[in-house]
Amino acid sequence: MNELGKKLCDIAFDKQKADYLLAMREESGNVAPVFISKGEDIGEANIDYPYQLVTILSRIYPWLNKGKIAIVARRCDEKALNETIKRGLFDGNRIAVIGLACSKEQIKKCRCNDPVPTKVDIGEPNNGVNTDELMNKLQRISPEERMDFWVRQFKKCNKCFACTTNCPVCFCEDCVLEERTFVAEKGIPPGLSFHMIRTFHLADKCIECGECERSCPVDIPLLTLRKMALKDIKDLYNFKPGDRETASPMLTTLEGELLEDDTHVC
């Protein structure tokens, strides 16, 4: 157990009185998630690599009927927990958060504007960045050029479902995109509807962790697409996913609607 591992175990088991700890560790040169019970050896804990532990938690959770689980969470993980707890996937009382502040490099990679967890247990808080260069560029160019760009990107898609599988707020067991009801019969690449439907489904719950983009084997800039839709829903309804209080799911509730007469057509 390294120093970091010891610190994580202290926070999880002594301070937060958790029964389990979900974190990352290095083993034989690979960094991967680790899940331990109180008293077990965490090994060489590591926080250098972003990974969606909330997705891992949702896989483990159904098998654990009781006990408190501590989880190392960046700000985005924390927001993912809020979105999932709000939807009843986890019991919030059984989750303890070990707040991890992201490094400057990580913040830059994620183009993240909200990197500091509510309570920082590990790491030093750093300021977020407000711009996604690609998003800015896409907003500047003409719709035709924008379509060219995305068509080129989406033609690379081989429908591996890494983006959905690793997404912390994508929790359907059978994804509608696996069927042919809404996507073209032609198969792979799946065409634009696949990506637009996913964008729509995530618009009121995406927490910008960037796991879809990191997971994509063909480097489609999915985080940028997510950020564009998040800007849309912010512009329309002044809504930003990620806290436990706001109405959810935004698009299904009647909250925030501006309808008083019937002129609201688009």
Binding site: R87, G88, F171, C172, E173, D174, P249, T252, T253
Partner: peptide, 12 residues
């Protein structure tokens, strides 16, 4: 089989 009890339908 498909339903994951997310509750969207309940709200809608």
């Amino acid at each position: 089989e498909k339903c994951i009890a997310c509750g969207n339908c309940v709200i809608a």
